[in-house]
């Protein structure tokens, strides 16, 4: 299960006199099993929205419900993969993946077993005793995905997880992520600034306006999977979304 209902506003107080409205009346529903990408001009509050869902920030008004239960703070129901490398450098790969399980109080044997399963899922089972600094960027993000999934979250939040990778690694990881999504029946909320990435990955693309961020439109991507990045239909959707974004950038 993993149905997410968002209805909120968020503003930040810089000092007493000045508040910035980051998100205004954002309404969005992510259905169980959906792969939803959020796209928008930079500074529109995409990351803020994801952090609110993760429970790392609190909305100023409104609320977020995951399977009908209100999100009150970070917990293991939401898994998150960050744009920056977030693996704990002092832990080996397997101990990174088993971190969440350890926190749940699972036995070492059991958590290692689960961790190994997810490492295998991302194809890194032979690196379990390596330290993060020994891995390449793409491998680190794979481990980060395994670590988020090992907790068996109801929704996986991804904040431009492939943003700092080179183009080829990025493509490879997108394909792997889709495989995992299908295999594990995940619900994924994915923030990106790349239209290509969104069109390749998502069932639905939520286009956000510039600050204060709102959901402008949710575009359904009805392309067959596996998708062809260069097909005319994909191009058509890309052009359509790029136009909307361009309009946002200029401000209509």
């Amino acid at each position: 299960m993993g149905t997410l209902e968002i209805k909120l506003s968020k503003s930040f107080e810089k000092d007493k006199s000045k508040t910035t409205v980051a998100l205004e009346d954002v309404e969005l529903t992510v259905k169980d099993g959906d792969f939803l990408c959020i796209i928008g001009p930079s500074g529109c509050g995409k990351t803020t929205l994801l952090r609110l869902v993760a429970g790392l920030d609190e909305p100023t008004s409104g609320n977020i419900a995951l399977d009908g239960k209100r999100i009150m703070g970070p917990d293991s129901r939401k898994g998150m993969v960050f744009q920056e490398y977030s693996l704990f450098p002092w832990r080996t790969v397997i101990r990174n993946v088993s971190f969440g399980l350890e926190m749940q109080g699972k036995e070492k044997e059991e958590s290692n077993e689960i961790a190994r399963r997810y490492l295998k899922l991302v194809g890194l089972e032979q690196f379990e005793t390596s330290y993060p600094h020994e891995l390449s960027g793409g491998m680190r993000q794979r481990v980060a995905i395994a670590r988020a999934l090992a907790n068996n979250p109801e929704i996986l939040l991804m904040d431009e997880p492939f943003g700092s990778l080179d183009a080829q690694t990025r493509n490879a990881l997108q394909i792997e992520l889709l495989d995992i999504w299908k295999k594990e029946h995940l619900t994924i909320l994915f923030v990106t600034h790349s239209v290509d990435e969104a069109v390749f990955l998502a069932d639905k693309i939520a286009v956000m306006s510039r600050r204060p961020g709102k959901i402008k439109e949710v575009v359904e991507v009805e392309l067959e999977r596996p998708r062809d990045r260069t097909s005319p239909e994909a191009n058509r959707i890309r052009t359509n979304i790029l136009k909307k974004l361009e309009k946002e950038r200029k401000g209509d």
Binding site: A54, G55, L56, P74, G79, F88, M103, L157
Partner: peptide
């Protein structure tokens, strides 16, 4: 901050755990 937040979303939220584990 990224380590602290990564730990939090993995269910490590108590000060005691964040101090000792992160």
């Amino acid at each position: 901050r990224i380590y602290v937040e990564a730990a939090k979303v993995l269910g490590c939220v108590r000060d005691r755990d964040l101090i000792s584990k992160v």
